[in-house]
């Protein structure tokens, strides 16, 4: 790795860099220059082939529900939010991401189109957050 590529908090290959871009509305992924694997969030090495030749590229924020559920027995701090819907979403780029879905469980199905947005943490979520996470937005999928 050359000097100017060194990892720092602005690099999207680290979580502060990834969430800072997300707060600005950009969903960034690592894309393996050797095998094309989409790494979400970005990371310095590709789990598909082992290469460290990873580019960072903006991703489409649209995709569809791959699987989903609802949390009825949440961590105690989130008790008032339950039940809330969680899904694995396959983005149009092929990368998959777990996240909240802003819809009731009964209104969601496999294959439904969704779009990724962000919001600030609630007070309850802030109570669970570590200090370095307080300014990270939470990604949430909205039905399209």
């Amino acid at each position: 790795m050359s000097g100017e590529d060194r990892l720092d908090v602005d690099s999207p290959l680290t979580l502060p860099g990834f969430f800072s871009a997300l707060a600005d509305g950009d969903l960034l992924a690592g894309v393996c220059a050797d095998c094309g694997e989409v790494l979400l969030p970005p990371r310095p090495a590709c789990y598909g082939c082992g290469s460290r030749n990873v580019d960072v590229e903006p991703q489409p924020k649209t995709g569809e529900i791959y699987s989903y559920t609802a949390v009825h027995t949440p961590p105690p701090a989130l008790e008032d939010d339950a039940p809330y819907t969680i899904a694995v979403v396959e983005l149009d780029s092929g990368g998959r991401l777990t996240g909240r879905v802003d819809a009731n469980y009964d209104a969601v199905g496999i294959g439904d189109p969704v779009e990724l947005g962000t919001r600030a943490l609630t007070d309850e979520e802030r109570s669970l957050a570590l200090e370095h996470e307080l300014e990270w937005p939470l990604h949430v999928f909205e039905p399209v």
Partner: peptide, 13 residues
């Protein structure tokens, strides 16, 4: 931690 826990996942979910 970054994506799953912060979204409120649990073992059953």
């Amino acid at each position: 931690r970054a994506i799953e826990q912060r979204s409120g996942v649990t073992a059953p979910s």
